[in-house]
Amino acid sequence: MKKTLILLIIFSSLMLTTNLWAQVWTAGDNVTLNIPEFALIETNYAPVSLSLTTSTAGAAVTSVSNSDLFVKISSLTPGATDREITAKISSGTIPAGTKLTLVSAACTTTNSGGDLGTVNSTPIVLSAIDQVLALGISSCYTGTGYNDGFQMTFTWSPDSPATNYSLLQSDTYNITVVFTLSAHDGN
């Protein structure tokens, strides 16, 4: 009887110890650090207006540029994947006889961090199809200031004026450009 009691005490104390240990381990197990992947993109909403004109009789209209727009991103990617920034025209058409190109500068460094990828140094000729401005972007942030992020330069010019100049028509044309942050496989 006494023996049984001792055994019981030992056993229960063991149980208690185990319980105690288990409590410590459980507490450790419950600390769940969840890093959800995300892809956020925004601009500084700088208004961009371009005007083709000339002030010299006999001269052609000259190309014009605007670099007011900055694209900001926050990105967290699943392991070993990366993303790209693309742009396309979603509404409106580029006026006949002209072309609109877009090129991104490397991301500003003041308030950014992480792997911001590489920009495409060749300007894309904007169309209804997405084209790559920057790629190899993984987990990073650009900063949120007005002049933080990828500075975009739009250049508008006559397209092959020797043959197309007569297509120019004076008017105002409204275009919508869409920037997208995504991966080839859509993550």
């Binding site: 993109i41 961009v48 371009l50 209209v61 004076s170 919508t176 450009v177 869409v178």
Partner: peptide, 22 residues
Amino acid sequence: NNNSVKMSLSLKISAVALIDFS
């Protein structure tokens, strides 16, 4: 979708009528 953002762009071709001598 917050992984894309739109912007509007205004393009204007001005009427031009300029003349000069050479």
